[in-house]
């Protein structure tokens, strides 16, 4: 899945990409099990074709978009993003896809569309992890409209120039590089435009630990993990000190203004 170098500001991180093997063998994709190795082990059963993404809610042009339509909806771009997990590790991934804004403009949101909700696949036949009640399936995530429209927010269909491996959220996933990884829903089947702030899966499960925004922020600690530092997989040696985590994962110049005047300790 080839993509042209993205011209979006901030889309080409200068960091060294994490080896393909690590990107595709160390995944949080609870629908296939809670162990990091589970998705690579069990996601083979996921059927990614035919695949449709339903667009519904406060839009003038709702409808079902099949994968082939989506693949041609906008020119594919390669973007090298840092990915910071809430657990304190990070990767650098060369994604292939396009800005979610391209799709949003096509479906023409109404004035009532203030938030976008992402609903991901929950099919017991294909996803062994669903038998565990870790979360209230399906996994849902959400963004504020301006966050969803930000050019850095992308729908990804590939990585390392290849079609997205199943364990990384095939056939289509969200990537929001300035937020913790769990905000970027995998294997999306529905995009819903809504007026009220939707509740996300992790917010519903443990509201004291996960907020709606979940911006990468070294100054707001997760009660279980310090967020001040991170370990860059594949690059930081075993005994290397963890590197400092950057505000908005280093995307502050691009996205800082979205949160001007907000108390980010309160809206974590």
């Amino acid at each position: 899945l080839p993509g042209a170098r993205s011209a979006v500001a901030g889309a080409m991180a200068l960091d060294k990409p994490t080896p393909y093997k690590d990107v595709t063998s160390y995944n949080n994709f609870y629908e296939f099990g809670t162990d990091k190795a589970d998705p690579a082990k069990y996601a083979g059963s996921l059927k990614t074709r035919p695949w449709t993404v339903a667009v519904e809610g406060e839009v003038r042009k709702p409808g079902n978009y099949d994968l082939d339509t989506l693949l041609k909806l906008a020119p594919m771009e390669e973007r090298i993003y840092r990915l910071r997990c809430v657990e304190g590790w990070s990767m650098v991934v060369p994604w292939v896809g396009w800005s979610l804004a391209e799709l949003i403009r096509k479906v023409e949101p109404t004035g009532n569309a203030k938030f976008v909700q992402f609903i991901t696949l929950a099919d017991r036949a294909q996803m062994p992890g669903l038998s565990q009640a870790v979360l209230d399936w399906p996994y849902v995530e959400g963004l504020r409209m301006d966050e969803a429209l930000h050019p850095l927010t992308m729908l990804a269909f590939g990585l390392y120039g290849e079609v997205l491996p199943n364990q990384n959220g095939a056939p289509v996933r969200l990537v929001v590089p300035w937020k913790y990884g769990f905000k970027s829903g995998k294997s999306i089947v529905k995009i819903r435009f809504v007026e009220k702030q939707p509740r996300t899966s992790w917010e519903a499960a443990i509201p004291s630990e996960y907020g709606f925004y979940s911006n990468v922020n070294p100054k707001v600690d997760h009660p279980r993990w310090s967020q001040a530092t991170e370990r860059r997989l594949g690059e930081d040696g075993l005994f290397a000190k963890k590197r400092p985590t950057l505000m908005f994962n280093g995307y502050e110049p691009q996205v800082g203004q979205l949160y001007a005047g907000m108390d980010l300790k309160k809206f974590y």
């Binding site: 690590d22 063998s25 160390y26 990091k36 190795a37 590790w89 370990r231 997989l233 594949g234 075993l238």
Partner: peptide, 8 residues
């Protein structure tokens, strides 16, 4: 694996 520190 990808995160040997965590594994250890």
């Amino acid at each position: 694996g990808a995160n040997p520190a965590e594994t250890l």
